[in-house]
Amino acid sequence: MIDSVMFWNEPNNKSHWDPEIDPDWSQFARMINLAGQAVAGVNPDMTRVLGGISPIDPNYITRLKEMGVLGNVDVLAVHGFPLDWNLWQINEWPAKVAEIEAVAPNHPVWVSEVGVGSFGAEEVQEFGVRRTAELLLDRVPRVYWYSLFDLPHSWEATTRHKEAEGSSYYRHFYMGLIREDGTPKPGLDAYAPHADRMGLMQWFHYEDPRLPLAVEWMKRLGVRRIRTGLSWADSFRPNALDWFDRQMEALQDFDVMATYCFTPEHLGHQPHHTSPPREPQQFADFCAAMVERYAPALPARATAGRA
């Protein structure tokens, strides 16, 4: 069910990792090194992806490289939203990818989140889909569009600085190709010709009722790849494994990149999902358990047969 795993999400963004607790990312590096080794121990063929970075910062990658992280992941990933939040233009995408390639020439770079919202105008998103496809599909091995669905207005966007973001916060609710009421935006028509090459990134909240509709839309569009999350924090909810099983079963016809992230409140230095865990081995154990459950290593005879 899973063809790749991503360790964390936007670790250089304070919405997802607390820089006050771990200002030099040494705790993050230790956690990822343990997770990378644990997953390789369960399935040596599993592709391990470093959590997509936002902002795109080659100095951050260099720092992690110095702490051995690149030896425990196979792929680097970047996120970008130049028409919504980033301080660079959409046409700079190839140059942004090249910045990371320059400091890590032995690692492929995937764009695991790219999106354009319809907050200002739906025509902007439509243009953004087309231009992104032109700039990236022949530039990097994998691209994932964020996202299929708008975030419902009754939910909360995952951010630690809602007040500081001001009006930019509300852009989080307009990133989908399909509106909250289920009707498609013009951007969906722009995306459809690229669906077999441009994957989708869609977070599914715990027991998300949108899961069956998402599968229906992805099959209709001809989507091959999806990136989603298996939340470490959610794993402590009642019947969490039942939900994970339903999610993975529903997505079994796609190539899935599973993102492992979000610290359980009771395991962090601070009771927040962005906090580094007190015991990083516990995150590694979670990653290994999920790979063992959903993407175990092939039996030796099957592996030999593939050679």
Rank of each mutant, 00 (worst) to 15 (best):
T263S: 09
L221W: 15
I32P: 12
P209Q: 14
R301G: 03
L87S: 13
W217G: 04
G51S: 06
L177K: 13
I178C: 11
V49K: 05
F262M: 15
L137W: 05
E156R: 02
L177M: 12
D242Q: 01
A40S: 08
E180I: 13
G199K: 03
G222S: 07
L151R: 05
R301N: 11
P58M: 07
A295L: 10
E216V: 02
Y260D: 09
G229F: 01
A297R: 05
P19Y: 10
D45K: 03
G51Y: 13
P108F: 06
Y169P: 15
S112D: 05
Q89W: 10
T62C: 07
P105D: 06
P264H: 14
F81W: 07
P299F: 04
H269R: 06
F283I: 07
A157S: 08
D138R: 05
W85A: 07
G222T: 03
N91V: 13
F236E: 15
L135M: 05
T228A: 11
D84F: 01
P296V: 04
P105I: 00
Q89E: 12
D189I: 13
V42T: 13
G71Q: 05
Y144N: 06
V143G: 03
P44M: 07
P11K: 06
K14W: 12
M198S: 04
F286R: 12
Q202P: 10
A35Q: 10
S54N: 10
P193C: 08
V49S: 12
G222K: 07
L298S: 02
I56G: 04
R160F: 13
L298K: 14
R210P: 01
W217Q: 13
W17M: 04
H79T: 03
K185N: 07
D245F: 11
W17F: 13
A104Q: 05
W25T: 08
E134Y: 08
Q252I: 03
T259E: 08
A98R: 07
S147D: 04
F81Y: 15
G71E: 00
G268S: 09
D208R: 08
Q202W: 09
H273M: 15
L136P: 09
P212A: 00
R225M: 14
L230F: 12
P82V: 11
E279L: 09
V103G: 00
Q27I: 14
G71L: 02
G41N: 06
S4I: 06
